[in-house]
Design a protein around this nucleic acid. Sequence first.
DNA 1: TGTTATTTGATACTTACTCCTAATAAAACT
DNA 2: AGTTTTATTAGGAGTAAGTATCAAATAACA
Lengths: 164, 164
Amino acid sequence: MRTVDEMVDLFKARGYRMTPQRQCIFRILQDNTSHPTAESIYRAARKQVETISLQTVYRTLNELASVGEVLPLELGTGMARFDPNTDQETHHHAVCSVCGKVRDVFAEYQGVALPDALRPDFDVVAVQVVFKGVCSACQEASRTLRAMTSRQEHKAKAKMEVVG
Amino acid sequence: MRTVDEMVDLFKARGYRMTPQRQCIFRILQDNTSHPTAESIYRAARKQVETISLQTVYRTLNELASVGEVLPLELGTGMARFDPNTDQETHHHAVCSVCGKVRDVFAEYQGVALPDALRPDFDVVAVQVVFKGVCSACQEASRTLRAMTSRQEHKAKAKMEVVG
DNA sequence: TGTTATTTGATACTTACTCCTAATAAAACT
DNA sequence: AGTTTTATTAGGAGTAAGTATCAAATAACA
């Protein structure tokens, strides 16, 4: 995504009006690498513009997506995530299937293209490579849990499940 | 996914009971290349077992997924799709962002792996390559629509939108 | 500053999916 | 085969992500 100032100009050029709510969302997304959900953006936005509604967050995110300044990601974690880094050539994702966290994967993969036979039947707009797996934090957590279970420290385990 | 008979044995071996509902879902998925949703499987299943519930379809699909006999796909079309072809090496997907249809893409991509730097932080279980774009049917439809609009055949266009 | 069209936020709605529970039926054991 | 046990089912209620609607607020611009 561009800078906030550039986004303001771009939105105005497209005939959108500039509101504190929209600028606030631009600011939150600016250089954001946390792959936020609509909810998490909403929570951050309320700290700056107390009366902003979730509806406005969704609306603005969809506008940003339709202008190509934000990439909506559907990674099987139950809700959409929005990535201001829209580069699809060198920028992919790793999703932890335990905690749902998403990490950027910077790499350029050669030769990932539709086979010739399919080419006439499908006009490719974007290619997404998604790595599914378990992040080191969750690996560590499950190792600890297993060790506890084998020693039958059930109380500690139960406590950890509640805390975690 | 394996044959229905093999699936029956596998489920029994895992301590699951064999019911007409489960076998029916096995049969529907067998060699199914349409990337069905839970809803579409439910509709097909009701033709064979009239009283089957959506809940049972979801439950069975989750069981199949946890046993690794079905691959749940989250492709940004708003609902999960279930693929009995669980080969992740040579089998990828192309999703039409207009009609939502999913096509198989058979190709083996070399070198699509996590960069070394990330390797210790993330244990990769699966890699998915997704092509997003527009299928030929939807390209054709939008071409027709544009041609109509330019000739200002508004009534025909409106009619087509309702029909499509 | 006044006018007007866009945007906002509250509320209601839709939809994909899960939870709960009494009834049912598959498997285990006579 | 009959009985018991226990997993499974149907169906309704519930949840949560996201969308539609619309009166009121406000940005843009004269």
